[in-house]
Amino acid sequence: MFKNERQLQIEWGDCDPADIVFYPRYFAFFDASTGALFEAMGYTLRHIRDELKDVGFPMVDTRSQFFKPSKFGDKVVIKSEITEVGRASFGIRHQLFNDGNLAVECTEKRVWACHNAEGVLKAKPIPDDIRAKMLSHG
């Protein structure tokens, strides 16, 4: 299934008074990594919203395990991959590595969404071309 990798450096504002990443910041890192994964597939959120007229892919479940803290100035690598593709939902795994060691692992379940005629957010089948790209070995 499709994979992507990105690097980032831990910023001062990512850290708590103990000089380690404040745990909610990891979820922001992983959300940005999901966006980067779709961009690597050739589908920006702007394209999804403007061209496809869909909302995007809201989160319906997320879980993380923390193995090693990261600190201000650390350079980390986040590896993201699609793990499952359903009719309207899909799974992603993010692994954050610090100095080559797995520091945090996160799984997400997201749903492809649009607004129905009444303006209510609703799941919708993942478009065929995007599904094919998700299932590819990018």
Rank of each mutant, 00 (worst) to 15 (best):
N116G: 10
A117M: 04
V76F: 00
S33G: 14
N101T: 06
W12L: 11
V104G: 06
S89V: 01
V77Q: 06
T83C: 14
G56H: 11
F90S: 10
K75W: 02
T34Q: 01
P58Y: 00
V77M: 09
I130C: 08
K79G: 02
K71T: 15
R25M: 07
D61Y: 07
N101W: 06
V21M: 10
P69C: 09
A40I: 03
V21I: 14
V120C: 04
R131S: 14
A32P: 06
F30H: 05
R46K: 10
E39K: 04
G138I: 09
V85D: 01
E51Y: 04
G56Y: 11
A32R: 04
T34E: 00
S136P: 09
E84Q: 12
D61S: 14
Q7P: 04
P125Y: 02
E51H: 05
R46I: 10
V60E: 14
F67T: 09
G119D: 12
R93D: 10
N101Q: 08
T44I: 11
K133I: 13
R49F: 04
G138S: 12
K53D: 15
D31R: 03
D99P: 05
D50S: 13
V60W: 01
A36K: 02
I92K: 00
G73W: 02
D54A: 15
V21L: 14
S33Y: 02
R6Q: 12
F97S: 01
D74W: 06
